[in-house]
Each structure stands twice: as structure tokens, then as C-alpha cells.
Amino acid sequence: MDRQGNVLNKEQYIGAPIERAHLHRGFSSKKTPIKWIRFFRACVLQREIAQEQKSKRIKKIWFILLGVFLCNFLSIPLNFISETIGAFFGVIGMLTCPGLIVAGIMTYLTNKKFKKNFTDGFDFFADYFSALFTLIEEDLQLDSRIALEANVKDTVTEENLIKNESYTSESRGFISGVEKNYERVISKGSCFFNDESLIFFQFSERTRERIIKKRGSSGKRKTKHKYRAAYPFTIKMKIPKHKYQLNPSIDTTQISFAEDDEYYVFKVYRKFDVKKENPAQYNPYEESSISSFAVDYFSLEVINLINTCYSCVTPSA
């Protein structure tokens, strides 16, 4: 009760001794759900703090440059008061052009440093997995840890390219096209439930990029990059035979099934696809559509995959 309504805020994370959120490298660890949730929250907050600091620094750089530029105009009236002061301001004003170059370079370096340390798109990951871990938290054994490995880098990179082929279209003005398919495992992990079941999960991003060269209605040539992304989530569940018995009928069109001496093993799969599930949210010019799914929807659909596995067994009487 005492902690009711308490939330983590930015102030708690300024200088706090927590894990550094170098998310571009991904991470791999075993933690209790609450520690994962704290870690995700901390990563998001650290990024927000760094983003604010970055914006302040860039503003400061351009504000100084504006001051240098204004010295040009100030030097004229100041010349009437004192030639030395006027000349001083005039010299500063002359630094506007080199200052512009310096400010541009400094802005570029500041943005580059931020991008190196904090990747874009982590917020969805934090929200989705915080929700998922919160839902299963009470089904884990006390102090049981969830193993999680994550890669939150961009999917559309050479290292994730799995297929590259030419693309043709009958559309008007079409000249040539290339279709590239990328795949990245965003995260995978495992945990024990308190009934001794084991859960393995894997969440991936599959992106198709079409690069189309075409001639517009004005006759001008242009290149378009169109994307379509889908997000398969796979759950493999090992359910102990000494606690459950197999139901006589299993729908194998939805579920893959195998067994060994100790476990019934089920594998279920759910592909999140914005274009199919929520076409109004789909934008073909955006690489990623993962943030278009509501956190509640995502977590309940994933929980339902576990539910589907459990529906194949009954507790031993």
C-alpha cells in the first residue's frame, strides 16, 4: 500500500547508478519481471533525458551563432560610440560564415553521438515487453527469472538482407524495380511457469522493401521506396506430462505438436501485420509499423498463444 501511486520519474534517473542504456548493442540477461520492467523504464527515461540534453546543446550552438550574426548589425551603431568597440563587434560578425560551418558540424556530431548511444523505436519494445511480463508475472515461480535477448537495431541493413530479387509491375510509368527482404530477430527468451511448464518465445520483424523506378505524369523520373513489415511472434511451450494429460483432439492446423518422455511440446505462431489487421494505420513509406499495434492488443494476443497451448491439455485428475 505504501508504494501505491509511486512511479519512476526522470529526476530519479539523473545520475542514478543503473545499467547504461546502450540499446544499439542490444542486450542479453536474466532478470525477474519487475527488474526487466524497471530496466525498460530506465532505458526509456535515459533516452528522454539524453534527448532533452541533446536538444538544449543544439539550441545553444545555434543561439550563439545567431548572436555572432547580430554582431554585424550592432557594429554599425556602436561605431558611432567607439570605433574600437564597433571594430570588435565587426570582427565577431565576420565569423558568421565560418561559424555556420562549425555549428553545422557540431550539430551533426551531437546527433551522431546520440544515435550511437540511443536507438530509435525502443519505446514500443519497452511497452510491449513490460506489459507481457506483467501479465505472466504471477504465473512464474517466486523470484524466477526471465531470460531475454534483444536486438533493437534497424532491420533494413545489409546484415539482415535475406533475399534480393528484381520486381516487375504493370503500373503506368514503371521502369524497373528491386525487391529486398530483410529479417531480424527483435528478441527471444525463455522462462519457467510455476507449474513447471517452460516457455520459449521469439519475436521477429520481416520487412519487404520495394525500390521502384518510374516516370511520373509530368515525365520526370523518380525512385520510390515502399515497405511492408510483418511481426511473427512464436511461442514454444513444454508442458510437463506428470501434471497434465493430453486432450484427445488437437487442431494441428494451428498448433505444431511433439512429445518426449517428460513433456508435451507445442509450438504456436501469430503474425502481426498492420496492413491486414488495421489497414487505416498502414503507411507504405514507413519502414517499421510495429508501433501501430496497441500495447493491450499485442500483449493479450501473445498471452492467447500460451492459452492456445494450455487448451491442448487438462490437469491430471
Binding site: R3, Q4, I34, I37, S130, T134, D296
Partner: peptide
């Protein structure tokens, strides 16, 4: 907010 005691409330609602 999930990093708070209200996490139980969120879980129950879900």
C-alpha cells in the same frame, strides 16, 4: 504506470 504498485491493478483489468 507498470513500474509501480498499480501494476497489479493493470494486470487485474487486463
Amino acid at each position: 504506470e507498470l513500474y509501480s504498485k498499480d501494476r497489479s491493478v493493470w494486470r487485474r483489468k487486463m
